[in-house]
Structure formats: structure tokens, C-alpha cells
């Protein structure tokens, strides 16, 4: 079974993330990046499915030179091979263009199952998996908190807003997983050493047959007009409980008309 996992390289959420004022895009220079934590769950599920079904796992990332780190981390966790699509013209792409590049890259690979994280930790859109599925003409089973694969049937549990659903699809299919799907493994020392020898293919837009005019900031179908840092919340009143903390809390709520 051939399994592809899409992983994104993102700015660290615990650092001071910001925008580049010259073009209103995310500042990816000033902040350290890493493999999106939510994509580690996708790598984990892919590895588990591969272990049980004699599969091969290939990770795909679209991003700048540093995004190779995201591929490496996934290889250290146990993935077999990597694909890194890097091209300066891709910078500033919106979700629609990103999904085009990913779909073209996946088309070049054997793929029975294509795993995604539920959303990136920077853009947080949660739309790329279904966009890629739409482009590839594949069914998508998304926001899975549990994944099982039996032959060519993939079954997931999805804890939705109003119901818990069981959903099935036949491979080839797209699967996105949540952070409820099971803790991702840490790379072992052996895994870290082994990753150095694993193949990583670097691809450009030319290799994928994509025109420069189809991607990047100028080709985006959405445009950021402006951004503003939200003024920090002004610190409010803090009291220490001396046996009357609950009463003081209720008094505050009453003063704000919540009681």
C-alpha cells in the first residue's frame, strides 16, 4: 500500500508570529519554523497504517528551502521517502494555489491513501485536504479521530458538532486526522540516523507542469488588504482569595450585569 502524507512547515506558534509589511504575507524569516504539530498526527497514522498493511510512506511538502526540516522530521519518525516542492514563485500562494501544487505532486506518486493534518497551525483554514481531494477526484474522509484500514476500505470515526459519525471510503482516498487520533511518536536515535540515508526528491513547478502564473501572491484569488496587531488586553483587576474570593468574583459579575 502506498501512502502519501502532506506536511507543512510553519512558523513556531509559541514565538512572536507576524506579517511582512511589504506584501502583507506571513513573516517566515523572523521566526523559527517547524513541522506543523498537527501534521505529526497525520504522519503517525500513516506509519501505523503502513506497519499493518505492508505500506510505504512518502511525505510531501510545499515550501521554502527551510521546509526540508519538516520532511526530515517526518523521515526521522519513520517515513520512507520525501518530496519537497520548492520554487520562489510559490511564495504567497493562497489555499487554492497550494492545493494545485500539492495535487500535481501527489499525481506523480503512487497513492492509495493521502493523509493530511486537520489544519495547519498557521493558516488554520482546514480546507486544503478537501481541495486536493476535489482536484484529484478522490473521496475525502476528514477530521478523523480514529482511522482503520481493512483491505482497500478506510473507516474513520468523526466527532462532529452534532453527532459522532462513522464514515467509510474506498482507496484511493484522502484522509485528514485530528489531534485526538493518537499521540505521535518521537524520532528514535535509530530513526534519526536512518533518516539521513532516505531519499528526498526536490521538485520545481516545471517538474509538475505548473505555470508560474497559476501560483504565488499575484495569482492568488484572495488578497490581504491590511493587517493590524491587536492592542494587548489591558490587565484587569486581580485579587487574592482570602476567604472571600468567590464573593468578590460574584460582585464583579454583578457589576458587569452578568448576574
Amino acid at each position: 500500500m502506498n501512502i502519501v502524507v502532506c506536511v507543512k512547515y510553519v512558523p513556531d506558534a509559541t514565538a512572536d508570529r507576524s506579517f511582512d509589511a511589504s506584501d502583507n504575507t506571513v513573516d517566515r524569516e523572523g521566526v523559527d519554523g517547524l513541522l506543523s504539530e498537527l501534521d505529526e498526527y497525520a504522519v503517525e497514522q500513516a506509519l501505523q497504517v503502513a506497519e499493518e498493511n505492508d505500506g510505504e510512506v512518502t511525505v510531501v511538502t510545499v515550501g521554502p528551502a527551510d521546509a526540508a526540516d519538516a520532511v526530515r522530521k517526518a523521515l526521522q519518525m519513520g517515513a520512507d521517502a520525501g518530496v519537497h516542492v520548492e520554487d520562489d514563485t510559490i511564495a504567497g500562494s493562497d489555499a487554492v494555489a497550494t492545493s494545485l501544487v500539492l495535487a500535481k505532486a501527489i499525481e506523480k506518486l503512487e497513492h492509495d491513501l493521502v493523509f493530511f493534518g486537520m489544519s495547519s497551525t498557521d493558516g488554520l483554514m482546514g480546507v486544503v485536504p478537501t481541495m486536493v481531494a476535489e482536484r484529484l477526484g478522490l473521496p475525502a474522509v476528514t477530521f478523523a479521530s480514529e482511522v482503520t484500514v481493512d483491505g482497500s476500505t478506510v473507516t474513520v470515526r468523526r466527532d462532529g458538532d452534532t453527532a459522532t459519525e462513522t464514515i467509510t471510503a474506498s482507496a484511493p482516498a484522502v484522509v485528514s486526522v485530528t489531534d485526538q487520533s493518537g499521540e505521535p511518536r518521537y524520532p528514535s536515535f535509530k530513526g534519526i540516523m536512518a533518516a539521513k540515508k532516505k531519499p528526498v526528491e526536490d521538485l520545481t513547478l516545471d517538474d509538475l507542469g505548473i505555470e508560474a502564473s497559476q501560483v504565488g501572491l499575484d495569482a492568488a484569488w484572495t488578497k490581504v488588504l491590511s493587517f493590524a496587531e491587536r492592542p494587548p488586553r489591558t490587565a484587569g483587576e486581580i485579587v487574592t482569595d482570602e476567604g472571600d474570593g468567590g464573593v468578590k468574583l460574584a460582585e464583579f459579575l454583578a457589576s458587569k450585569k452578568f448576574v
Binding site: 506579517f19 502583507n24 484572495t222 490581504v224 488588504l225 493587517f227 493590524a228 491587536r230
Partner: peptide, 12 residues
């Protein structure tokens, strides 16, 4: 960014 920024955007 966890409520740190507001962004105005449009669909083109």
C-alpha cells in the same frame, strides 16, 4: 495568530 492580529482581506 491566536487573536494577536486582525487581517482585512478580499476575494479577487
Amino acid at each position: 495568530f491566536a487573536g494577536g492580529f486582525t487581517v482585512d482581506a478580499t476575494v479577487t
